[in-house]
Design a protein around this nucleic acid. Structure first.
Length: 158
DNA sequence: GCCAACGTTGGC
DNA sequence: GCCAACGTTGGC
C-alpha cells in the first residue's frame, strides 16, 4: 500500500568500484547498497526510503561524473552486515549484530541512459540550480531529488 | 595529485 | 561542550 508520494533520490558510486554496469550484471539486476558510513546518508535510507522509490545512479570520482541511469528501492533499510566483517573495507568495530550502526537498502536496475548526464551539464541548467547535488561543498552520497528535477534530468538524457 | 569543504574524534 | 587535528569525499 502506498501511503505517500514516491520520494526520488540520487545515489553516488565510483564506477571503478561499483558502476551501473555492475548492477546490470548482478543476478536479477539487484544488489544491496552497502558501505554508507555517513549519518545523514544513513538517516535518509533508514527514515525516508520506501519501496518503489526511484533513484538516479550517479558516477562519482571519475573522468565524467554524472547521472548514468535509474534504479529503484526493492528492500527498505536493514543492517549493513559489511560493518561486522573485519576483512571488509567497510568494517566498523562500533557496529554489531546486537546494535547495528549502519543500514543499507536493496536496489534494482531500471534503466541506463543513452548518454551520461554530466555534472558539468547539470550545473549549467538554471532549472537545477536548487539541486542538493550542486550545492557548494556537498559530499553526501545519498541525496533527495525533487520530482521536477527528476523529470528534467530524464529529459536531458532522452 | 591537489585541495576545499565537510564530518568525526577525542583531549580538555 | 569546545575545537584542533585528522580523515574523507570528490571535482578538477
Amino acid at each position: 500500500m502506498q501511503h505517500r508520494p514516491l520520494q526520488h533520490w540520487l545515489m553516488k558510486s565510483e564506477p571503478g568500484v561499483f558502476g551501473i554496469e555492475h548492477l546490470q550484471n548482478m543476478p536479477e539486476q539487484r544488489d544491496h547498497w552497502d558501505g554508507i558510513r555517513n549519518y545523514q546518508a544513513r538517516n535518509f535510507m533508514r527514515d525516508q526510503m520506501s519501496l518503489g522509490d526511484p533513484i538516479f545512479f550517479y558516477h562519482s570520482n571519475c573522468p565524467q561524473p554524472g547521472v548514468t541511469g535509474t534504479m529503484e528501492v526493492v528492500r527498505t533499510a536493514y543492517p549493513d552486515f559489511t560493518a561486522w566483517d573485519p576483512t571488509s573495507h567497510y568494517f566498523d568495530p562500533k557496529s554489531s549484530p546486537q546494535n547495528p550502526r549502519w543500514v543499507m537498502v536493496d536496489v534494482q536496475f531500471r534503466s541506463r541512459f543513452k548518454r551520461v548526464v554530466r555534472l558539468q551539464e547539470m550545473k549549467a541548467c538554471p532549472e537545477l540550480a536548487d539541486m542538493r547535488l550542486l550545492q557548494r561543498g556537498n559530499r553526501l552520497s545519498i541525496l533527495p531529488v525533487t520530482p521536477k528535477q527528476w523529470v528534467f534530468i530524464l529529459n536531458l538524457a532522452a
